[in-house]
């Protein structure tokens, strides 16, 4: 009797399994079977790898990617390690190579770990691009670049100046960066310094590292407010430094006396923005980044995007510039108390 029950439950289990597979298969054939009316005739498969799956930032990128995939007759595989483990990501790239996808778009969490797998993909004739973050040039053909350092530097300084009274903005400002050796941040700082010349009233009094440590960013910001009593603004230019600096201002009770701006996602800074500690959060448009990545993948597979290209037609985004091997998204968005409610990532 007992054996029968076990047998039955096993059969039931197998049927569930079979049901799952049947369902998935139907889905597959349905999607391949519907010819797209767009001008991209042949369906291609693009595998898109985020640094970490399930993070709101990347989920929002994937929404844009999904939209482009629909428009461009692309079957999109959006998958990545939920742990963010780059070794796991390398495993997934190998699987995509075996599956024979057409394009792999990688946001490398660790270019050193992913490099060999990306090279294997290229050796197997698969097109490889990076998006969001770059890897060694010989491991990919193009980078879909979210924003130029100049745009980011300008947006940061302009946002701060706006908070401090526009063109006549005046006061001491300081920068809390990631590590002093961080390449991205140093590029931004370079352009921030240039942009600061436009506002003669603003005086940069220091650049301090926070080494990707929120507690250090907090104490560095505190120290600077003490050392420079007339400090009016802090640029906290890493996603870790930003909340640290905001917390320091909040706890010092200097809201509306010291302003802070930086780069982060709306979700990470939402409470500070709603409380009024932070007036503006700068970031690029993540949905557009995902959208453009798929456009670039499609164009690369079709042969429309080759080295030497200077522009890329990118659907609803219009024509985008290609500089060297970088496809430029361009443009930043500023989240403020007024619009932050519209963004959930």
């Amino acid at each position: 009797m007992k054996a029968k029950w076990i047998g039955l439950s096993l059969v039931a289990g197998l049927m569930v399994l079979g049901g799952c597979s049947g369902g998935a298969k139907e889905g597959d054939t349905a999607s391949t079977g519907s010819p797209d009316t767009g001008n991209s005739s042949k369906k291609i498969t693009v595998a898109m790898l985020p640094k970490k799956k399930g993070v709101p930032y990347f989920t929002s990128c994937s929404e844009g990617a999904q939209q482009a995939a629909k428009e461009l007759n692309v079957e999109l595989i959006y998958d990545g390690p939920t742990s963010g483990d780059p070794a796991e990501a390398a495993k997934m790239i190998d699987q995509w190579i075996a599956q024979g996808v057409d394009v792999i778009a990688v946001s490398p969490n660790d270019p050193a770990v992913l490099g060999p797998a990306m090279k294997r993909a290229r050796d197997a004739g698969i097109k490889v691009i990076t998006w969001d973050a770059d890897a060694a040039p010989d491991t990919r053909e193009f980078l879909v670049n979210q924003a130029t350092p100049e745009e980011i530097g300008n947006s940061l300084v302009d946002a701060m100046a706006k908070d401090l009274g526009g063109d006549k903005a005046a006061g001491e400002v300081a920068i809390v960066t990631a590590a002093l050796t961080a390449a991205n941040q140093n590029e931004w700082i370079k352009f921030m310094k240039t942009r600061l010349e436009k506002y003669p009233g603003l005086k940069l009094v220091g650049v301090k590292p926070s080494n990707e440590d929120q507690k250090l960013a907090f104490s560095v910001s505190q120290d600077m407010m003490k050392a420079y009593p007339n400090l009016k603004g802090i640029f906290a230019i890493s996603s870790v430094a930003f909340p640290g600096a905001a917390e320091a201002i909040k706890q010092a009770g200097k809201t509306d006396k010291v302003f802070v701006t930086g780069l982060s996602t709306p979700n990470d800074m939402r409470s500070y923005v709603n409380e009024g500690v932070v007036k503006s959060v700068i970031l690029w448009n993540t949905k557009d980044l995902g959208y453009l990545t798929i456009c670039a993948a499609r164009a690369l597979a079709d042969g429309d995007l080759k080295s030497g290209a200077t522009t890329l037609k990118a659907g609803r985004l219009g024509e985008k510039k290609v500089v060297g091997d970088n496809v430029m998204l361009g443009g930043t968005i500023t989240f403020t108390k007024e619009n932050i409610g519209d963004f959930d990532f």
């Binding site: 597979s21 998935a24 799956k53 595989i77 998958d79 939920t82 796991e88 599956q99």
Partner: peptide, 9 residues
């Protein structure tokens, strides 16, 4: 499983 259902988790 991850080949067919394409979900790493």
């Amino acid at each position: 499983v991850s080949w067919h259902w394409k979900q790493n988790e």
